[in-house]
Nucleic acid binder design. Structure first.
Lengths: 127, 127
DNA sequence: CTTATATTTCGCCATATGGCGAATCGTAAG
DNA sequence: CTTACGATTCGCCATATGGCGAAATATAAG
């Protein structure tokens, strides 16, 4: 990210400026997740989560992969500028020890224990 | 900043989410400045700059020092958590090479060449 | 004590942001 | 082709944010 325009830098910091996006990112650093799983984790509407994912992706912090009807997101890792990796590490170092992040990690285990299809059913056809 | 609550983390990232605040911070990393000088650099109203300084200070990124009627701000440095220093270094590494930052640096030289008192006069008694 | 002045606070406005539900899109399955 | 469904886009609302000028604060100077 060195030598970038300030606006590009603030695109990243803005993306990291929302607690729910940080929570999502911390989860995505642990595991690749589909939107439904993030919805379950954050307790937000699918449309809201989708928007958050778009912001994180626009900032270059996450990547996505489409598989059938599902879209999987993960923290940026492949062929990514060194600076992005450093940012992700920074976020992780700063937040992964927090109470909220630890609780999210615990919830994430439960979410991962069922398959996405089953999960989406439980969400009352919200997505 | 390790193990902080996510809200404390986003206080920092939010503070870094505005281009004018980043520009101010980059200047403050180079030199301690009074509000009038930042006003001159950014071309914003004194009240606006004052608010920006408050946000940066709240986030722990800058410190201030009062000297008579003047308030001087500088990038946090003394007895500051290691993590804050790393953030400041990150901002500097990311942005100080940008065109905007370089232009600001050039303008800053001119601003520093006159004394603050003189500068405030030129600002048409706006502050 | 009064005046001048650097900064901050306050009140206001315009725009941005985060949230939701409804509608749309894209793809798998009947 | 039609249906089902996960994800996204759209339209809307409430709140947050960044901007300014005016008023208030605090301190130096007369």
């Amino acid at each position: 990210m060195a030598n970038r325009k300030i606006d590009e830098f603030t695109a990243v910091t803005k993306a990291l400026g929302d607690p729910n996006r940080v929570r999502a990112l911390l989860a995505l650093l642990q595991k690749e997740l589909c939107v439904c799983q993030v919805v379950e984790l954050l307790g937000l509407a699918p449309s809201t989560v989708s928007k958050h994912m778009a912001v994180l992706k626009q900032a270059g912090l996450v990547e996505s992969r489409k598989e059938g009807r599902w879209v999987y997101y993960r923290a940026a890792a492949d062929e990514v500028p060194e600076e992005v990796k450093e940012v992700l590490e920074w976020v992780s170092n700063c937040c992964s020890g927090s109470r909220e992040a630890q609780e999210d990690s615990r919830n994430l285990e439960g979410i991962l224990s069922m398959d996405p299809e089953q999960l989406c059913q439980l969400q009352g056809n919200r997505c």
